[in-house]
Design a binder for these strands. Structure first.
Lengths: 336, 336
DNA sequence: ATGAAAGCGCTAACAT
DNA sequence: ATGTTAGCGCTTTCAT
């Protein structure tokens, strides 16, 4: 009994009275096996309940049919959705997905070392590859796809939200409702997507001939708490605004609380728009107007790109942008 | 150049002027290598940038240092937290985690087949193993740990929330506030955790000498929508209640909306308590009173159990229960 | 302390 | 159409 489940290709061969190679042919669906032989082998396989050992197979073929996804964490709805999309698509192509969280660049570098260099993986997704110092640890020579930030590497594809476009949509929605003084809470400005959204905000304003007033823009850190605090700062500073665009839903929700506490009704006094369309966001009071990103779809696209890069090494690299959809609920209102 | 990254144990051996076996000893930290030899080998490894091929290693050793987790999905906050906990713990023991979603039992059986029987995995987590018909596909002879439902299998350990205890805490909190007519929205009653929570509800009531009134209990499906709809049904049916316990936060949030629409203030007219402590739940209006489950911790425990089962085959199986904490916010109130 | 030989379970190349 | 012979890159005997 060679290993746990015992039966190997040779046991099957013996049972069927053929060479182990013929068994290999059968399980690999080779055409050049006589129907009668194939039947005998298949019978033997069934009788012995034989299952090919995947590891041995990978070893002989030089790949692992395994992909890995490194994400800052696994619980954020955005990340989890991407991972689920990638996993779903990967499975359809016969790949499994190792998911790993790397909250910081140290964890990231260890992960890369253990995961990639050891060749237990055929390819890699990196969510937010340009956060902190992780860029310096990005692996070389391994098929890779970035998610969330555009790739600056010649061999690496990426898929990102059309961050600029999404921010434009948000601001234009507010503009259309008559708002002119639009406050803006950004995410961590070190991250590319935050800069892009900021650029979209400015571009939309500029296109409507409105000056960007720096005192209306404030940096948050993506958390609800930061949305709350920055909004308080805004209020305390005395700047006037009738609308507020938060770069994600969490901060929008925090902003609404701060606004309420300061006696400003949402949306009557100030309209609030978020970005993400997080779960339960429609159950808030008021239901949050936001932009929906198809993260699941992004994950799928990323998987397609990665698998193509693995299976067709020559294929050109791509930078995909996914656009967002405006979801109008009740936290935004016509300016009165 | 044998494979992608080229350099193998034999290249290192040649370079260091030793046998490949000695190299193997060095990378495996064997004691019986002369310091001087070791140094030469290590130098060669560094010069050639050699990395052991994990697959080849697994092949020779008969394991894969890979675990898999099958979950209904990857995006639910609860599941994602468990997975993150399991992944974190697994990595500390040198294991990677494949995560896969199986929304139904068909997907589940395919997954099991491809993942386990092929021996690409040393062990398996199953989240909610007794949902739908998946129990019949649970693998045999592979170290497994159930999460979310108690194991009924002699060889399988499990870790679950203390569902009954959590429900008791919720109901007792309401009782202590003076409530006597407590509505109850259950999850899918086919699932064990839902039954357990139901049992806790009944036990707490009984302990206070209160009759369980069936017309106050209604089955939801865990979604916010179902919380909304079942609460409407409750209201329309005319039963009176001053408090409501929903088996998860999503349904609680849906219930609050239905209550509001019917003109009942929360918590003034009806106190509402949920279970899970989902993100942003504290940003609702009113902030939701709920029970916090340490899902991350559950994931860690599960990983410890699984790894022990793998590495110490004799070790006894366990059914772990994790208790919840009451988080009192403002959706519950003293009965007036 | 080191090396030689064998083998993990399979696939690939070359026979026949 | 089938069998034989070699590996894949590593670990594990068993010698020395």
């Amino acid at each position: 009994m060679p290993n746990r489940s015992g039966v190997t290709i040779r046991d099957v061969a013996a049972r069927a009275g053929v060479s182990h190679q013929t068994v290999s042919r059968v399980i690999n669906g080779s055409e050049q096996v006589a129907p009668e032989t194939r039947a005998r082998v298949e019978a033997a396989i069934a009788e012995l309940d034989y299952r090919p050992n995947a590891i041995a197979r990978f070893m002989a073929k030089g790949h692992s049919r395994t992909l890995a996804c490194i994400s800052p964490n696994l619980t954020d709805y955005t990340f989890a959705s991407i991972i689920e999309g990638a996993e779903t698509e990967a499975r359809q192509h016969g790949y499994f997905l190792i998911s790993a969280s790397a909250p910081d660049d140290t964890a990231f570098s260890i992960l890369i070392e253990e995961l990639i260099q050891s060749r237990r993986t055929d390819g890699l997704f990196v969510i937010n590859p340009y956060a902190d110092g992780r860029r310096q640890f990005l692996p070389q020579g391994v098929p890779t796809v970035f998610i969330g930030s555009q790739s600056r590497l010649p061999a690496v594809s990426s898929v990102t939200l059309d961050d600029r476009g999404a921010a434009c949509m948000a601001v234009q929605h507010l503009l259309k409702l008559g708002h002119r003084r639009i406050a803006h809470i950004t995410g961590v400005l070190e991250e590319e997507c935050s800069q892009e959204r900021q650029a979209g905000y400015e571009a939309s304003l500029a296109a409507s001939g409105i000056d960007v007033r720096p005192e209306l823009v404030i940096e948050g850190d993506w958390s609800a708490t930061s949305g709350y605090q920055t909004t308080r700062q805004l209020i305390d500073s005395g700047v006037e605004f009738t609308a507020l665009f938060a770069q994600n839903d969490r901060m929008a929700v925090g902003a609404i609380r701060a606004l309420r506490e300061a006696g400003r009704a949402v949306p009557e006094d100030v309209s609030v728009i978020g970005l993400d369309d997080m779960p339960l966001t429609s159950y808030f009071d008021p239901p949050l107007t936001t932009l929906r990103q198809d993260m699941f779809g992004m994950g799928r696209e990323a998987a397609r790109l990665l698998i193509r890069a693995i299976e067709q090494p020559g294929s050109p690299r791509q930078n995909l942008h996914i656009s967002a959809d405006l979801v109008i609920r009740r936290s935004t209102n016509q300016l009165v």
